[in-house]
Simulated assay, not measured.
Amino acid sequence: MTAALAPPTWVALLEAHERRADALTAGHRARRATGERHAIDDFLYDYYGTRPSVLRRWHPGVGVSLAPGPDGSAPHRQWRWYATAADGAVSFDVAAFLVDRAESVRFIHRLLSAIASRPAFTGCFGLHEWAMVYRQREHRHQLPLRLGQEGTDAVVDSHQIRCTHFDAYRFFTPDAVGLNRLRPTRESQVELDQPGCLHASMDCHKWATKLGPAVPGDLALDCFELARDIRLLDMQASPYDFSSYGQPAVAIETPEGKAEYAARQREFAQRAGQLRARLIGVCAALLEQAAPSTRVGA
């Protein structure tokens, strides 16, 4: 069943979305114009491939049509994976999307459902970032280490590393790989990813992006904003000195730092859990309309 939005309603939603997206990406766009780099925020655009112009596009989501206004059909009529009805109403074309993305939708649904089924582990203390510079003199950020190389290595040596996320583990230095209690792989991602992991929570943005116009605009921006907020903690708790960015360290090598990290980690896990549930719902709505071979559980 499709819900129809009248022009005044969807135009207001579209304009509000554009304003919010512009505010979220303003700093990045200004820096890009001058070639300035940002060791915290650039990750969202470089690693995730986020494009402000794509983030700015408002989508109504599955099962919502946009009624035509005085000037004709909604601009979505010219966008990929949209269909225009005889009366000029425009809606997301689930069938066309699934022709291209059914396999991805099934994987995302399976992964997010698996993560949601597990308890959050909050005892990693962000040591994945420390393992990425362990016993290595060259680092990806041109920033000093708070404790120096020897002090950083000593923190790694004195802690147990339990990283569950492959896309963090794969950046460990050669000497750090063997220190991790687990051996995450791409193939074991569904079995290992868990809701306490900062990177698994940031990845809500990745999955929302891959689901594209199936994701309502507010959910897409909520996922991006969550990733931005988590990225800050990820770097504050890292071995790098971010004082030049005006950011205080979360010194996870101390009891106080561990307590702060775990508390914020739990807050992010709760936020991510709510967004993850909505993304699972998007996947389910898509797969309910799929051919039998691509439905949930098929």
Rank of each mutant, 00 (worst) to 15 (best):
Y261D: 05
L221D: 10
A262W: 01
R186G: 06
R264V: 01
L226W: 07
S201V: 10
E253I: 05
D193T: 00
T209N: 05
E191M: 09
Q265A: 12
R264S: 04
C204D: 11
E253W: 14
K258D: 03
T209Y: 09
L219E: 09
G217E: 09
V250P: 08
S244L: 11
D234N: 14
R231S: 12
D222C: 08
P213C: 13
L232E: 01
A200T: 15
A220F: 00
F224Q: 11
A200P: 14
R186H: 09
R266C: 10
A259K: 07
A251C: 13
K206R: 12
L198W: 08
E267L: 15
A251V: 06
E253P: 03
E260H: 02
A208D: 07
V190Y: 08
T209F: 09
L233S: 01
K206T: 07
F242D: 03
G196V: 01
K206Q: 12
P248V: 10
Q194E: 15
G217P: 06
Y261T: 14
V215P: 15
A249K: 06
A214T: 06
L226Y: 00
A208R: 11
L233E: 03
I230A: 07
G212K: 06
F242Y: 15
L219Y: 09
G212Y: 08
P216Q: 11
D203R: 07
Y245K: 07
D218I: 10
K210Y: 14
V215L: 12
S201K: 05
E256Q: 14
V190G: 01
M235R: 15
D203S: 14
G217S: 06
A214Y: 03
D203I: 02
V190C: 05
W207E: 02
D218M: 02
G257I: 02
W207A: 00
L198V: 00
K210R: 15
G217Y: 11
Q247S: 12
T185S: 15
P195I: 03
P195V: 02
D218Q: 11
S238H: 14
A259T: 11
V215N: 14
I252D: 05
D193R: 12
R266D: 11
Q236M: 11
Q265R: 07
S238I: 10
H205S: 04
R264P: 00
E260V: 09
L219P: 05
H205K: 09
D203F: 05
G246Y: 09
Q247K: 13
Y240A: 07
A269N: 10
A214F: 00
E225V: 15
F224R: 12
M202T: 04
G246P: 01
K258L: 10
L219D: 12
R228H: 14
D234K: 11
S244H: 11
Q189N: 10
A263T: 13
M202Y: 07
L192I: 13
Q194N: 03
I230S: 01
G196M: 00
Q265I: 14
I252C: 13
D203P: 09
K258Y: 08
F268Q: 13
F224A: 04
P216C: 11
D193N: 12
A237V: 08
A249T: 00
K206E: 06
H205G: 08
D218R: 08
A214P: 01
W207F: 09
P239S: 10
P195S: 08
S244A: 15
W207I: 04
E267N: 11
P239V: 04
Y245L: 13
F224E: 05
I230T: 14
Q189C: 02
